[in-house]
Structure formats: structure tokens, C-alpha cells
């Protein structure tokens, strides 16, 4: 593999990582806070109201059966850092770092064979 190929490859990978960081660290502030499709379905039939003890569900809906998450008190629970407001971007950046290390590491260990640059004719 030529050096310019290697450089080009790294440039692409670094660019990809930067895009992920910008999305998780910045664009995440623009995300809708409305319940997603699944949550909308499980909340169907309930009125959600904020109370000091958390959200209260009045009516009949599936979400009333949901149990507290086992790691709900974790440091990054609900995409915030220690529950701090406006910390979603920091939580997102930490998530990107963890994910790239975990996924990158696992896939690197799993890779079966090393190939030279020659495009591998892959029959699936």
C-alpha cells in the first residue's frame, strides 16, 4: 500500500470520527425531547405529569409496567453527566469515545485475515 493511500485511509477514518463527535457533542442539543415511537406507544392512554418524585403516569398505558433501570443512577444515565442539565453533549462525546474504543477493539481482535491493499474479491 502506498503512503498516500494510507494517509487517505486515515484521513477518512478521522473525518468519520469527527462527524460522530460533532453529532453527539453538538447536534444532540437540537434533538427532540418528545418520546420516540416506541415510548409514544407505551405511553398511549396515559397523561404524563412532572412531579417532584419524577414523572407520574395517570390513566392506563403499557409504560406503567416499566421498572426502574438497573443502572438508572449511573454517572451517565439518561445521557447526562451526573444528572446535570445541558450536559448531553459531554455525555455524547464520552459515549463516542467509549463506543469507538469498544467497537474498534472488538472488530480489530475479530478480524480474520490481513489483506494487502488488493481489493479482496468477496463472495458473500
Amino acid at each position: 500500500m502506498s503512503r498516500s493511500d494510507t494517509r487517505r485511509r486515515y484521513r477518512f477514518l478521522i473525518g468519520f470520527l469527527l462527524v460522530a463527535l460533532v453529532i453527539a457533542g453538538g447536534v444532540s442539543y437540537l434533538a427532540s425531547s418528545s418520546p420516540d415511537g416506541l415510548d409514544s406507544v407505551t405511553l398511549h392512554g396515559c397523561q404524563v405529569s412532572e412531579t417532584s418524585a419524577g414523572e407520574q403516569l395517570d390513566g392506563t398505558c403499557i409504560a406503567q409496567n416499566a421498572t426502574e433501570h438497573a443502572t438508572a443512577s449511573g454517572p451517565l444515565a439518561d445521557y447526562s453527566v451526573g444528572g446535570a442539565e445541558h450536559s448531553v453533549g459531554i455525555a455524547g462525546i464520552l459515549g463516542v469515545i467509549v463506543t469507538v474504543l469498544v467497537a474498534g477493539g472488538l472488530f480489530w481482535l475479530l478480524r480474520g485475515r490481513s489483506t494487502s491493499d488488493a481489493a479482496t474479491p468477496d463472495d458473500d
Binding site: L30, A31, G95, V96, A103, F107, R111
Partner: peptide, 25 residues
């Protein structure tokens, strides 16, 4: 998975994590 696609797979995973944070109305 090889030397070329393994890093790509790691970044695709990371990208999905990031984009899943973006709820659109």
C-alpha cells in the same frame, strides 16, 4: 473483517451511537 474494514466497522458503530442520540420530530 480485515485491516481495512475493521476500523471502518468500529467507526460505523460509533456513528450509529451518535446519530441515535438525535431524535427528530
Amino acid at each position: 473483517l480485515d485491516d481495512r474494514t475493521a476500523p471502518m466497522a468500529g467507526l460505523v458503530t460509533t456513528f450509529v451511537f451518535a446519530v441515535q442520540m438525535i431524535n427528530f420530530p
